[in-house]
């Protein structure tokens, strides 16, 4: 392992749910139709008597303790030197154990059989570029960098946020490396509409927002 540990921080207070990240990712990674490496879930959220619009971008959490890697029988799912979770398509046999193991539901199977997901734009970050979703974010809600470097922008913002920055489902013990600012407020608010994934209904109102 190198000293590097790549991670992402998403400030939900300024995510406007524009889905520019969704589109940039689709264009950069050429994911097939109906499959997304990242997307934004949006719903009306009541908080302290106010009606607001929650926007929650989702993607692979590149966990430090990833269940998907543990269950992979061939080693196709692995952690790269920079800490990111990757899939080697040559070794993937399409058994979908990883899809079942991932509580974040960020993996999908390609028509050719292999399982795919967000790579944190590995092909870009190894060339010194930001992931496509980060570089396109119009409100700089998404931030990316080396969590092990205390001088990186993301480390500084994480340090400033303190315990306000949290990962999804931290209780699962998978140590996600995508952090959110404002997650408690977002998930704690009363759900007041259906949840949309992009502009399509993901869950009807009565099904909840988790």
């Amino acid at each position: 392992m190198s000293d590097k540990r790549l991670g992402m921080l998403i400030d939900l207070s300024v995510c406007i749910g524009c889905n520019a990240c969704t589109v940039a990712c689709r264009q950069e990674n050429e994911t097939p139709l109906t499959k997304f490496n990242t997307w934004v879930e949006s719903w009306d959220a009541g908080i302290d008597g106010r009606v607001t619009r929650a926007n929650l971008p989702k993607l692979c959490n590149h966990c430090a303790n990833p269940a998907c890697v543990k269950v992979c029988p061939t080693g196709a799912s692995y952690q790269a030197e920079d800490g990111t979770v990757q899939v080697d398509p040559e070794r993937c046999i399409g058994c979908k154990y990883c899809m079942a193991a991932c509580p974040y539901q960020v993996r999908y199977q390609l028509e050719s059989g292999e399982v795919d997901k967000c790579t944190f734009c590995h092909h870009r970050t190894t060339e010194g570029l930001l992931p496509a979703c980060v570089s396109t974010c119009v409100t700089t809600s998404r931030m990316f960098g080396d969590l092990n470097d205390p001088d990186s922008d993301i480390s500084k913002k994480l340090a400033a946020a303190g315990d306000k920055a949290k990962g999804l489902m931290e209780d699962r013990g998978m140590e996600p490396r995508v952090y959110y600012i404002g997650l408690d407020e977002t998930l704690g608010a009363e759900q007041l509409s259906a949840v949309h994934k992009g502009g399509n209904v993901l869950r009807r109102r009565e099904e909840g927002n988790a």
Partner: peptide, 10 residues
């Protein structure tokens, strides 16, 4: 409440 920064966290 269409598009914009009126979120639970703002």
């Amino acid at each position: 409440l269409a598009n914009g920064v009126i979120t639970p966290a703002s």
